[in-house]
Design a binder for these strands. Structure first.
Length: 720
DNA sequence: GTAGGGTTAG
């Protein structure tokens, strides 16, 4: 009984067990030892040993070795092929996906010869690889789909699930749903694929229906994957109630303790704008990982609480959890939002240290951050760093120039992009159109309009708004209106753009009519709308209506007046000569707006030659430490007129002390796509002589018509 | 007794 000899395992059996064990532990060192032993014993051509070896290399991400081991197999069976195919599809990426398709074609081609045919395992690998194909993924997917049916794999749950997932990733949820509905058998993976497919397309309603279907069918598959995918479908404000229910379900089922589920809850609340709930859930998470922190930080940044986002980031740094590129994108966006240049630069430093520098999302966020913080040159450095910027990055850089008023550079960069043959998106077009508006570059604007048509963009928001605004701001109000009326839908920005075009070109009444039309169509005005309305009133001298609108803004629409609104009111009152009323109005507003508002009143006083009030406004500006040279010049002129020599001296001394100089006036005009700029006093233009002669001719003409220029003492002083 | 599908942060 005691000394029964144990049967010694056959060498192939022993290799087999060792290979499985080694695969489980992903032990590459041991794999190489085993491989050499297998070669020595001459079993490397036997599928029963070589297949697990191919798989072992695959799980260690060693595709070259896997391929070598595969090619050594003399009579490859289906498993040999599938191991290598899935090795590539699991690693993913365009390159590996192409390899999957090559291997698959070879397998099919040699099938009859070897009597080895693709099966369910093969098609799962193929369908997983399809979405990553750079060239015609849909064609490959459909072809694969029909082959799978031809090879009798249509009923396999794995094949079905991977098909659902494939169609979803290609954006064809309807095709995915067709496959889903026809599947004879489904499991939790199938449900998850379908639900997350809807979630990715932001079709929360469909996702709920599928989830309810699953619960109704009595599927037992409720697991952490299902919960996370459902939660991601509810990450929109309109689904917050459903999201809360799933949160409860997570608590009841105990699945909330899975960190991925907790993270999905945090994300869901963040995207719904319930940052309190997001933060509470986050606090209770056990085993917070980098995704948890990123979810919360991004949530704060996206809901506009960027200070809080930065605060959480600094807490994260103390918690010893390493930030990922996702975290840093969120933090950079927070920095852009509040113009936190110093923090942004710190993040730049740490992302270099962490090796995220060349990540495209990181680059885009960095370019955006530097541009929004006003450091366009740094933004450009970040842009130039990548040889192949994608369209989002091109667009951020172009948008960065526009935001900083460097519109010529924006157009130049857009030209470079066109030469590189890069297809713009709607935001690119909107940015370059905005650049044209600011430059009043009608000709270039028209060319871009032609591109909009050529590229097949519609007049949807934001292109429609940008285009109508471009025409309006360039003075082509009819074309602006034509585009505006042709837009399929209009949001408050579209209305604002058209109104501002009208009002800037002296069509104040039409702007106000448009405002009435906007209200009657049920679009809620925002603060910009009221800036437009008030400035229209100011241009038209409509004091009474100005007051009505100013009061309507806070009383009816609960919009807190900003400095722009106060400025419009002061401008309106000053232009109308109601200078004392303007002064009293300024004194009733929050003091931090003084610098802007007193300056407006000062100009008003100049026009009406109210020297006492002008001096009062000027003194206020000096007290507040104004850096506007024109304020000091005007004030000293006023004192000159009033004969107060001592005060003139005092103002001039202050001006010198602050190092302020009179800024020369300048203007420009675009002719035949070229911009001609003029600065007061310069004689740089090649046709300077002719231009001056023409100005003299025109001056004489209008003087003869009876025009008398006003040369009061103030403007005389200004000219000196 | 070898091989396959799904979730969370931009």
């Amino acid at each position: 009984m005691t000394n029964l000899p144990l049967p010694s395992p056959s060498p192939s059996r022993s290799f087999f067990t060792k290979l499985l064990h080694c695969t489980h532990h992903k032990n590459l060192k041991h794999a190489q030892t085993l491989h050499s032993q297998i070669i020595q014993t001459g079993s490397s051509s036997c599928p029963f040993i070589a297949n697990p070896l191919v798989n072992l290399y695959a799980k260690c991400h060693r595709l070259t070795e896997a391929k070598l081991a595969f090619e050594e197999i003399k009579y490859k069976d289906a498993v040999s092929w599938n191991c290598l195919i899935n090795a590539h599809s699991q690693l993913g990426g365009p390159q590996n996906s192409v390899s999957v398709m090559h291997l698959f074609r070879r397998m099919v081609k040699e099938a009859n010869e070897n009597d080895v045919y693709p099966n369910g395992h093969t098609f799962t690998g193929v369908f997983t690889a399809v979405p990553d194909l750079g060239k015609n993924p849909l064609g490959a997917g459909k072809q694969g789909h029909s082959l799978a049916l031809a090879f009798g794999c249509g009923c396999d749950v794995y094949v079905g699930s991977s098909l659902v997932s494939m169609y979803c990733k290609l954006g064809l949820v309807c095709d995915a749903r067709k496959v889903f509905d026809r599947m004879p058998e489904r499991n939790s993976v199938t449900w998850v694929a379908m639900i997350s497919g809807y979630a990715a397309q932001r079709l929360g309603g469909e996702a709920v229906r599928v989830f309810k279907l699953m619960v109704g069918v009595g599927e037992e598959g409720l697991n952490e994957f299902v919960l996370t995918s459902v939660l991601s479908a509810f990450a929109m404000p309109e689904f917050i109630a459903s999201g809360k229910q799933i949160h409860c379900l997570g608590i009841k089922s105990g699945l909330l303790s899975v960190v991925a589920v907790g993270n999905a809850v945090v994300t869901m609340y963040g995207k719904c704008g319930s940052l309190d709930d997001a933060a509470k859930t986050f606090e209770l998470l056990s085993g917070k990982n980098t995704i948890s922190w990123s979810a919360l930080i991004t949530g704060f940044a996206q809901s506009g609480d960027s200070e809080k986002a930065l605060e959480m980031f600094s807490k994260m740094n103390h918690s010893m959890v390493k930030p990922s590129e996702f975290t840093l994108v969120g933090v950079l966006n927070a920095c852009s939002d509040i113009g936190a240049t110093r923090e942004g630069k710190q993040v730049h430093g740490s992302l270099v240290k962490l090796g995220f520098e060349s990540q495209i999302y990181i680059r885009t966020a960095m370019v955006d951050m530097y541009a929004k913080c006003g450091c366009v040159a740094d933004a450009r450095k970040g842009f130039d760093f990548l040889q192949e910027p994608d369209i989002v990055l091109w667009t951020s850089m172009i948008g960065g120039y526009v935001q900083n008023g460097e519109n010529e550079d924006a157009l130049v960069l857009y030209g470079k992009m066109q030469i590189r043959g890069i297809f713009p998106n709607e935001l690119t077009m909107a940015s370059v159109l905005k650049a044209c508006s600011s430059l009043a570059a009608l000709e270039q604007g028209k060319q871009i309009h032609a591109c909009v048509v050529k590229y097949g963009f519609s007049l949807e928001i934001p292109i429609g708004s940008a285009l109508s605004s471009m025409y309006a701001k360039c003075g082509s109000l009819n074309d602006g209106n034509l585009v505006f009326r042709g837009m399929p839908t209009r949001d408050v920005i579209s209305w604002n753009a058209m109104m501002s075009g009208l009002s800037q070109n002296g069509y104040g009444n039409e702007a106000l009519e448009l405002f009435e039309e906007m209200l009657s169509e049920g679009t809620k005005p925002d603060y910009v709308t009221f800036v437009n309305v008030l400035s229209a009133c100011s241009h038209m001298g409509l004091v009474e209506r100005g007051w009505i609108f100013f009061n309507m803004m806070s009383n009816e629409f609960h919009i807190v007046p900003r400095v722009e609104h106060y400025a419009c009111m002061v401008d309106l009152l000053s232009r109308a000569g109601k200078l004392t009323e303007a002064k009293e109005f300024i004194e009733s507003t929050p003091t931090e707006h003084g610098l802007c508002l007193w300056q407006i009143l000062l100009s008003g006083c100049r026009n009406y030659r109210n020297y006492d009030l002008g001096a009062y406004a000027g003194e206020k500006l000096m007290e507040l430490g104004s850096k506007e040279s024109s304020a000091y010049v005007l004030l000293s002129s006023i004192y000159t007129v009033m004969g107060r020599r001592g005060d003139v001296e005092r103002v001039r001394r202050m001006m010198n002390l602050l190092g302020l100089n009179k800024e020369p006036g300048c203007s420009w005009i675009e002719m035949k796509s070229q911009i001609h700029a003029f600065v007061a006093g310069d004689q740089m233009h090649p046709q300077d002589k002719q231009i001056r002669a023409e100005v003299q001719r025109l001056s004489k003409l209008i003087t003869d018509e009876g025009y008398k220029p006003v040369f009061d003492l103030l403007s005389a002083d200004l000219e000196s």
